[in-house]
Structure formats: structure tokens, C-alpha cells
């Protein structure tokens, strides 16, 4: 097996420079690459374009990048819960492209799958359709959306092996598998890194072919945005 292991987050992100086009996994704060985020914060790079469903919260996740003005443009579907984000967006400091969540997911999936564009019904007749080709199929209008490929995709999985095979847990899977496939270089951080042969091939979600670097994260805070309980 091809070995993909790097020592830590710092080594994994060493060649990510200002101006890079990144994809970052996660839905809200669930399944985000916490250790890569920390390592990038320490590097002090800027002008990043980031594809991520959300933009973190003010003091966690991508919100920390925003505070340090590291981001030029966010491509997301939902950006509530973040005051600094809203301030930078409304003042024009931050470029924001908002896309329907399924369109965002499919743009990433298609990118990794070698499909340059696709047609979707989402957003027809709305602001999202501006500047995009609309075409009718079987009497119904669809928008053409181009796919995405990133310079670096930063994904987070539950378990991974040294060949880069990944297994996610629960709804922390979300955007991570498609982003892994759509990265020119994909960096996977995992809660538990195991030797090859340990994971059941039947259970692999992301085959190692998509992953160039893998490491076990130092720690995971796994912050919860809305702790909601039954009483």
C-alpha cells in the first residue's frame, strides 16, 4: 500500500500558501478539520478562497480565519450564527457566493468525478440563476452549474488507515467524502489512525486513492452549536 502518513497538522498544511483555493469539510461545526484549522491559523496566510457549507461561529472553526482576515472569498450555503462574517460581508470586505446546499454538494461531487458541469432545478428563477445558462429538459427549466476542484481539500474522518482509507461517523460525514475526491491534494485528519489491514474494506467510505496526506489529530473539541436535550 502507498503510505500517506504525515507527522502532524503542521506538516500536512506546510505548502498551503496565501491565495489558495480550499475546500473544508463539515456541516456547522460537525465534522470540521479542527487540527488543520489550528495549523493554518498559526501559518498566518491570507487571501484564501474557501468552499465550506458554513463559516463556523465567531470563536471556532472558520470563524477564527475571518477574525484574522485570512479569507478573501467564502463559497457557502448558509452563514448564519457568525456576527463577524455578517459584518465583513455587509461592509464588502469579504466576498461571498451563496449557493443552494445541494448545488454546492453536487459541484464538489462533480468536480471529483470529472464532470465539468451539470443541470439542476435548484435556483431557477432566483438570484442564483443570474449569469447562468438555463435550459429546458422535458418541459422543465434547469440551471447549468460548473463543478469545483480545489488546490487543497481538508477533510475530517473518524478512522483512517495509513493508505488514506477513511470511515466517517454519524452526520460528521456530510461534505467530507466529496471534498476528499475533489482536491488536487487532499489532507485527511482522523481521530484514530490505524495500520493498513485494520479497517474492514466493506466499510470504507472514502477510498485512499483520493487522499494524499493523513494524520491523527492531536485533540478534538467537537464543539456543539445547539445542545438540545429531551427532558
Amino acid at each position: 500500500m502507498i503510505q500517506k502518513t504525515v507527522k502532524d497538522a503542521k506538516e500536512a498544511v506546510a505548502d498551503i500558501a496565501s491565495g489558495a483555493f480550499l475546500m473544508m469539510g463539515g456541516f456547522g461545526l460537525c465534522g470540521i478539520p479542527e487540527n488543520c484549522i489550528e495549523a493554518l491559523l498559526e501559518k498566518g496566510i491570507s487571501d484564501l478562497t474557501i468552499v465550506s457549507n458554513n463559516a463556523g461561529v465567531d470563536d471556532f472553526g472558520i470563524g477564527l480565519f475571518l477574525k484574522k482576515r485570512m479569507v478573501k472569498k467564502m463559497i457557502s450555503s448558509y452563514v448564519g450564527e457568525n456576527e463577524e462574517f455578517e459584518r465583513q460581508m455587509l461592509s464588502g470586505e469579504l466576498e461571498v457566493e451563496l449557493l443552494p446546499q445541494g448545488t454546492l454538494a453536487e459541484k464538489i461531487r462533480a468536480g471529483g468525478a470529472g464532470i465539468p458541469a451539470f443541470f439542476t432545478p435548484a435556483g431557477v428563477g432566483t438570484e442564483v440563476a443570474q449569469g447562468k445558462e438555463t435550459r429546458e429538459f422535458d418541459g422543465k427549466p434547469y440551471l447549468m452549474e460548473r463543478s469545483f476542484i480545489s488546490d487543497f481539500s481538508l477533510v475530517k474522518a473518524w478512522k483512517g488507515d495509513t493508505a488514506g482509507n477513511l470511515i466517517y461517523k454519524g452526520t460528521a460525514r456530510n461534505f467530507n467524502p466529496m471534498m476528499a475526491a475533489a482536491g488536487r491534494i487532499t489532507i485527511a485528519e482522523v481521530e484514530e489512525l490505524v495500520p493498513v489491514g485494520t479497517l474492514d474494506p466493506n466499510q470504507i467510505h472514502t477510498p485512499g486513492i483520493y487522499v494524499q496526506r493523513i494524520f491523527q489529530g492531536n485533540k478534538y473539541e467537537k464543539r456543539i452549536e445547539q445542545r438540545t436535550l429531551s427532558v
Partner: peptide
């Protein structure tokens, strides 16, 4: 516009389908 821009999340995909 100008006040609240949280994004559409999955709503545009859902209502289209």
C-alpha cells in the same frame, strides 16, 4: 437585502423538487 443574509441552505433544492 442589506439586512439579513444567512443563505438559502437546502431550501432552494427542496422547493425545486
Amino acid at each position: 437585502p442589506g439586512k439579513m443574509v444567512k443563505g438559502m441552505g437546502g431550501a432552494m433544492d427542496l422547493v425545486a423538487s
